[in-house]
């Protein structure tokens, strides 16, 4: 079998327990935040406060996914910032278009 031949020159390292534990911790945090979002969805009244809590939690979740799972937090600074800085355009687009939408609803 090809597998047996390969085994002679492939060194399989043992699992990095600490790293794996950290990954599961991140998964736990993501799960907890989602559960908390559910709690808020059914206990709070609709309004700007509720929306801001949701957005804040979404950003926290996004930070964990991009930072830990996608490993961006540990990449070289140049890479880190060349991914993060262009996101300013998205934020600007969001602000501009929501502003525009509210203006449309006022003239309708």
């Amino acid at each position: 079998m090809a597998h047996a031949e390969n085994e002679s020159h492939i060194t399989v390292l043992p699992p990095d327990k600490e790293k794996i534990k950290k990954l599961w911790t991140v998964a736990g945090i993501l799960g907890l935040i989602t559960a908390f979002e559910f709690l808020i969805a059914f206990t709070m009244h609709h309004g700007p406060l509720k929306t801001s809590i949701f957005i804040a939690m979404t950003i926290v979740k996004a930070a964990y996914i991009v930072g830990e799972f996608m490993h961006l937090r540990y990449e070289v600074k140049v890479l880190f910032w060349s991914i993060l800085i262009p996101l300013i355009f998205i934020v600007w687009m969001l602000v501009a278009f929501i502003y525009e939408g509210i203006a449309i609803s006022l003239v309708r």
């Binding site: 492939i10 390292l13 794996i20 998964a27 830990e68 799972f69």
Partner: peptide
């Protein structure tokens, strides 16, 4: 989807160790 993301990152971790 979150769980499948976790299993993916565990696959990446196993890949670093050459653990097929």
């Amino acid at each position: 989807l979150i769980m499948s993301s976790v299993t993916m990152v565990l696959a990446v971790e196993a890949g670093h160790r050459m653990d097929r």
